[in-house]
Design a protein around this nucleic acid. Structure first.
Lengths: 218, 218
DNA sequence: CGTAAGATTGAATGGCCTCAAGGACAGTGG
DNA sequence: CCACTGTCCTTGAGGCCATTCAATCTTACG
């Protein structure tokens, strides 16, 4: 289960698929599904941001992915979800019966879209893997911010404005570091003139190339 | 692209699918495909072990997965492979046209199997992610050995014998550490009486529970 | 205004990495 | 058969960076 990128039709009109794919909404903090739940449905994100987490044997928490509009989450393994999924913001989701995956004939179009989403999920997880493989904390965080900026940043002149839906702790658990290190890395970027923090959640990317350099630097 | 686990029919007879799925062989070190190659085929591993790698911007190398008998590799992203794939041992592969994924009707059975493989790949990548998320070097390595023992270990009484196809450097790049740390962690396990090294590649698991404890310990 | 949760900053420890050297082993050619 | 060579693995010493523990600051909300 988890996240998929860039469907061919990221936002099918709600009306068109309404009878097949009911819309559901969740408040921030709401739980969409839990690890080991039977996976009857796939969910296509229409609006909002979600967090997919798994627990390690040690008790620590790993954020497997963040899901945004257009992503599909909930791909099963052995018929069950493999992570917890919670809403970080208000979210609206389209629900698709998981059976669509197993039965291509019933709805070929949707089947193909969901399958593409599964392949995109594989690519996304590999990217996450590469992100975590970086050595330095600043490099990881810089790469993370760049990905967010490309996918969800609002351009404003030569700057990008990011509105983070997740808390520092979520970022830390996503990149496998501590909140303190996330915070320190951000302040370093700030002192280097790469970003500005309007609020804790609102980040302005001042120097995209500088961030790239920090990401690329070993 | 990458690795899938446990197909419903791990080893379809070569004869049956011969005309549809030619068999190919590679020597150790042989290249099956490279990153950014057009992904015309999926490959089902019949025998041998393969290594899937990606390069980081920094020049470092990340091992994304090891593929063993029964795994399917080569799932495309945007029609292309996203990693390099090389043979660690002699390998024999079944090749399946990638078009099978896009066209369920042509070969429903195979389509379903390959799709299951894609879902298994997602689960496998998540597991890898969790493995890398561990704190300590010994914990990571212990978990890695346990997975290998469960999937490919030969039982011998209460012991497991592992025959590693990969070099220390491959393990290091898989778990995101250095060869030196891999080596040091192995010697520590050896001194603790958890394993024995018959050769550098042949590892005997003496105390499975002890390994589990080391894996679980923060 | 007061409280609580989140975010930032500081100081000290520890574990992994880096750099470097030495050992094990196979393949090759004399 | 034995040095020779290259590759891989192991071991050692020292430094750096992320973590840990702790305190302060900020923000949101009642």
């Amino acid at each position: 289960m988890t996240v998929i990128r860039s469907l061919s039709h990221p936002h099918p009109t709600l009306r068109r698929t309404d009878h097949l794919s009911p819309v559901r909404s969740f408040e921030p903090g709401g739980t969409i599904f839990r690890e080991a739940d039977p996976a009857h449905y796939l969910f296509e994100v229409v609006t909002g941001t979600l967090r997919l987490t798994r627990l390690l044997e040690t008790g620590r928490r790993q954020v497997v992915a963040f899901a945004h509009a257009g992503d599909v989450i909930g791909f099963p393994a052995a018929g069950r979800h493999h992570s917890d999924c919670e809403a970080l913001t208000e979210v609206t989701l389209l629900t698709h019966r998981g059976a669509v995956l197993a039965d291509p004939a019933a709805n070929p179009d949707l089947h193909h879209r969901l399958q593409s989403a599964a392949l995109a999920e594989i690519a996304s997880l590999q990217d996450h893997l590469l992100l975590m493989a970086r050595k330095g904390a600043c490099g990881k965080l810089a790469s993370f911010l760049l990905v967010l900026a490309d996918r969800h940043g609002c351009r404003s002149g030569d700057r990008f404005i990011l509105d983070l839906a997740m808390r520092r702790g979520d970022i830390a658990d996503y990149l496998c570091m501590t909140v303190e290190t996330v915070s320190r890395s951000l302040t370093r970027m700030r002192l280097d003139g790469l970003i500005r923090l309007q609020t804790a959640q609102k980040i302005v990317v001042l120097d995209r190339d500088g961030l790239k350099a920090m990401a690329g630097a070993e």
